[in-house]
């Protein structure tokens, strides 16, 4: 889902850089020192998740984990995803350096939204965590696909066409991530609730 170099118009790339830097800065100021080890672990998970290919019938898809990062980190999710994306771009060649700002917004903002949804929905019991985690996991990647369509619309592509293709293509990922997020947060809620925001 990473946007490559040369796809977006220069002014869009620059604007996205500025916006992404602003949001990263705001979120970093809210980050507490005690959170940092957790941010490191979750960022590492996000960084390598793109390498996890899930065989699914005759095909395979890979994870994004946007919703999980949002649910686990809250407002720290945005800098976490930005850092993960920078390293994915530099080391794996995913996306592109000029498109980093746009990619960061495209995946970071859905993570923030997923985090808010998770904290708003979860109850005290195990089932509540499960349902909220499921919603957050599904929403993260869904919103990212919508953001992708919005960004590509600025370079002249048809919004509904891209959104439909991107959503359809990512439906397996959305389903798997909803389940992963639900199980991870419900498990953590049971054994180590202090890890959840």
């Amino acid at each position: 889902m990473h946007i490559s170099d040369g796809v977006l118009r220069p002014e869009v790339s620059v604007a996205a850089y500025v916006a992404a830097a602003a949001v990263t800065g705001l979120c970093m100021r809210r980050m507490r020192t005690e959170e940092m080890p957790k941010v490191a672990v979750v960022t590492s998970a996000f960084f390598v998740a793109s390498l996890v290919h899930i065989p699914l019938g005759p095909t395979s898809v890979h994870l994004l984990l946007i919703g999980l990062v949002g649910a686990l980190l809250g407002s720290a999710a945005f800098p976490s995803i930005t850092l993960g994306l920078i390293l994915q771009t530099l080391l794996f060649g995913y996306g592109g350096i000029t498109a980093l700002g746009a990619n960061s917004l495209m995946m970071g903002l859905p993570a923030l939204v997923a985090g808010w949804i998770y904290r708003g929905l979860r109850g005290r019991d195990w089932g509540g965590h499960m349902a909220a985690g499921f919603m957050a996991g599904a929403l993260g990647t869904t919103l990212a696909a919508v953001f992708l369509a919005l960004l590509l619309m600025t370079s002249g592509e048809d919004f509904y066409g891209v959104a439909r293709v991107a959503l359809l293509a990512h439906l397996p990922v959305i389903g798997i991530e909803a389940l992963i997020t639900a199980f991870v947060v419900s498990f953590l809620g049971k054994v180590k609730p202090e890890l959840l925001p």
């Binding site: 889902m1 990473h2 490559s4 793109s50 290919h53 699914l56 019938g57 005759p58 095909t59 395979s60 898809v61 890979h62 994915q88 794996f92 060649g93 995913y94 996306g95 293709v165 991107a166 359809l168 293509a169 990512h170 439906l171 397996p172 990922v173 389903g175 798997i176």
Partner: peptide, 19 residues
Amino acid sequence: FLVAFLLGQGGRDAAYAHR
């Protein structure tokens, strides 16, 4: 998994790729 399997057929390449 059923839904994923059915829909995975449609856009598998796009979902697979980051570059």
